[in-house]
C-alpha cells in the first residue's frame, strides 16, 4: 500500500493554483487535507499524475462572519470548526457537526472543502451544507462563480467542479433567532461513516406553529437531500407527537437507499425514520429553550 508516482506542486496563491489546473487538466488532482485522497492513493485506486497541494495558500483558510454569513475557507480543518469560539457561540450547529467526523487526528487535518468536493453521501459536510443552503464560491482562472450546495453536490463522489476550478469558500446563512436544530446519525462505531444521518432546523412562530422546517437526510440516496415538499407543507402546523410520527413515516419512504454489508436498505429506512423522530424532538427542545 504505497502511492504511485506523481509530480508535486505547491502553489503559493490561488491564482497560481488555478493556472496549474488549467495547464494540467484532468491529470491533476488537488490535495487539501488528503484524509480521503491519500488512503485511495495508498491503495492505488487513485493515481493522479500531478498533485496540487493547496495547503500553503493561506487565503483559503479561516472562519469569518461577514455580510450576515458565516464564511469558512475551504482549507478550514474540521477541528478548527469544532473548537472555533465564534462558531461555538454563534453557530453551534457547525461545531456539533464537525465533532462527528472521524477521529481527532483526522479532524485535525481534514478540511471542509475536501469533504464537500469528495461528496461522500455519508459524510457530514455535504449533509450540513445542503441542510443550510450553503453558498459555495468557486474560483477558476476565468473568475469566480457561486453555487448552492445542493447543485454543487451531484452524485456519489461527483460534484459540479470544472477541471480548472477550485472550491474556495463555504458560506452558511445563520439560523434565525430561536431556530432549533439537531444532527444525529447511526454508525457502527464512533468515527465511522454514517449508515444514516439526519439533520434538521426548526423555527416556530410565537404561537408554536412551524414557521420554517429544514430536514435533510444523508446516506439515503446518491447525495444528501432535503424534503422540500414536506418542509413547505409543515408550515403552520403544530409540531406535536403525531406530527413527529408522521414525519418519521415520511423519512422512512424518502430517497432510495442501498444495501451494503453494514446495513440493508430497509434498515436504513427504519433508521431514517427513527433519527428523524429523534432530531425533531431534540430541535424542538432547542426551540423551546430559545424562546
Amino acid at each position: 500500500m504505497k502511492p504511485g508516482k506523481f509530480t508535486y506542486h505547491a502553489p503559493e496563491n490561488l491564482h497560481a493554483a488555478n493556472q496549474l489546473l488549467a495547464e494540467l487538466g484532468d491529470d491533476a488532482k488537488i490535495i487539501a487535507g488528503g484524509q480521503s485522497l491519500i488512503p485511495v492513493m495508498n491503495l492505488r485506486l487513485a493515481q493522479p499524475d500531478h498533485l496540487i497541494d493547496i495547503n500553503g495558500i493561506s487565503e483559503l483558510a479561516g472562519i469569518h462572519q461577514e455580510n450576515g454569513l458565516f464564511t469558512l475557507g475551504c482549507l478550514t480543518r474540521h477541528a478548527d470548526v469544532e473548537t472555533s469560539p465564534l462558531l461555538m457561540d454563534k453557530f453551534p450547529l457547525l461545531p456539533a457537526a464537525a465533532k462527528r467526523i472521524g477521529h481527532l487526528a483526522i479532524r485535525n487535518r481534514g478540511t471542509i472543502g475536501g469533504s464537500l468536493c469528495n461528496a461522500d453521501p455519508a459524510a457530514e459536510w455535504p449533509l450540513i451544507a445542503i441542510l443550510l443552503d450553503a453558498h459555495l464560491s468557486i474560483q477558476s482562472s476565468g473568475g469566480e462563480r457561486h453555487t448552492p450546495a445542493k447543485e454543487f453536490i451531484q452524485s456519489v463522489y461527483t460534484v459540479d467542479l470544472g477541471a480548472d476550478e477550485i472550491l474556495t469558500t463555504v458560506a452558511f446563512p445563520p439560523l434565525a433567532r430561536g431556530e432549533g436544530w439537531a444532527v444525529n446519525q447511526i454508525c457502527r462505531r464512533t468515527g465511522d461513516f454514517a449508515l444514516v444521518s439526519v439533520a434538521v432546523t426548526l423555527k416556530l412562530d410565537r404561537q408554536g406553529h412551524i414557521e420554517r422546517l429544514r430536514l435533510c437526510l444523508g446516506s439515503m440516496d446518491v447525495t444528501p437531500f432535503r424534503l422540500i415538499d414536506v418542509e413547505q407543507a409543515a408550515r403552520g402546523k403544530i409540531p406535536d407527537k403525531a406530527w413527529i410520527h408522521e414525519m418519521a413515516g415520511i423519512a422512512f419512504d424518502a430517497g432510495s437507499p442501498e444495501s451494503d454489508m453494514h446495513a440493508s436498505a430497509q434498515y436504513r429506512r427504519e433508521m431514517a425514520a427513527h433519527l428523524t423522530s429523534e432530531v425533531l424532538t431534540e430541535a424542538l427542545g432547542r426551540c423551546r429553550a430559545g424562546t
Partner: peptide, 11 residues
C-alpha cells in the same frame, strides 16, 4: 449480532 441483523430478526 449487528444492529442490522437484530432489526431483521425483530422485523
Amino acid at each position: 449480532i449487528s444492529p442490522n441483523v437484530l432489526r431483521t430478526l425483530l422485523r
